[in-house]
Amino acid sequence: MCYLLFIGVGPKLMAQTASQPQPVLIVYNFAMVCMSAFVFYEFTVSSWLANYSLLCQPVDYSTSSVPEQMAKVCWWFYSSKVIELSDLVFFILRKKNSHLTFLHVYRHGTMIFNWWAGVKYVAGVRFLIGLINSLVHVVMYLYYWLAALGHHMQRYLWWKRYLTFLQLLHFLIVTIYTSTNLFTDCQTSTRASSP
């Protein structure tokens, strides 16, 4: 609710204010590059060590170290989605109200609930979504970080259209991957055996 309230009130408040959060934006974008890279690495290592299946991975409720590592990285990923709500704050502070699209608000708003439920109840089942998303976010926040450094970086940002293509490809892959739920009959969980 605070997120939606800020969307309604924020642009009106900023209309009267001059704000250039450039130093904060530089730090934020670089921190998001680092966090996304960390999450990508952890998803890759956890899924590789546990031999996770891309299409049909049951939830592993055992207390062994690898499923716990996967659950932790899923929580880190979820935390990154909460932090990414700050993107909206920066749009409003920089008076980039054209970026406040329905798709952006809907995606970020629903991602919080979807990932909270997914992490709490079925951590690791669809790890590939987080793995791909975190990789794309490394590239995306790297672009934003370089752009925030100033106009002298513009000559190094020739690859913006490729970033847009990567984001669209990511959306397509995740949509197809998620739709496989309709066609696969997977065992839902593996429980730790009782003594």
Rank of each mutant, 00 (worst) to 15 (best):
C2I: 12
C2H: 12
L5P: 07
L5W: 13
F6V: 05
G10R: 01
G10P: 01
P11M: 02
K12R: 14
K12A: 07
L13N: 03
T17A: 11
A18G: 10
I26C: 04
F30W: 08
F30H: 07
C34I: 12
C34Q: 09
A37M: 06
A37Q: 06
S46P: 05
W48P: 08
L49E: 15
Y52E: 06
L55A: 07
L55E: 06
Q57K: 01
Q57V: 02
S62R: 05
T63H: 15
S64E: 14
S64Y: 10
S64R: 14
S65Y: 15
V66R: 03
P67I: 01
P67D: 03
M70F: 04
K72T: 13
K72I: 10
K72R: 15
V73L: 04
C74F: 02
W76Q: 08
S80F: 04
E84I: 00
L85H: 02
S86H: 05
D87K: 07
D87V: 07
I92W: 01
R94S: 06
K95L: 01
L103D: 02
Y106M: 06
T110F: 14
I112S: 02
G118A: 04
V119F: 09
V122A: 15
V125I: 11
F127D: 00
S134D: 01
L135G: 11
L135Q: 07
H137S: 03
V138G: 00
V138E: 01
V139S: 04
V139C: 05
Y144G: 00
W145P: 01
A147Q: 11
G150P: 05
H151S: 14
Y156Q: 10
Y156F: 10
L157N: 05
L157D: 08
K160P: 08
L163T: 05
L163A: 06
Q167D: 13
L169P: 09
H170R: 13
L172C: 12
T175N: 11
Y177H: 07
T178M: 12
S179G: 10
S179F: 09
Q187T: 12
Q187N: 09
T188H: 14
T190Q: 13
S194P: 07
P195W: 07
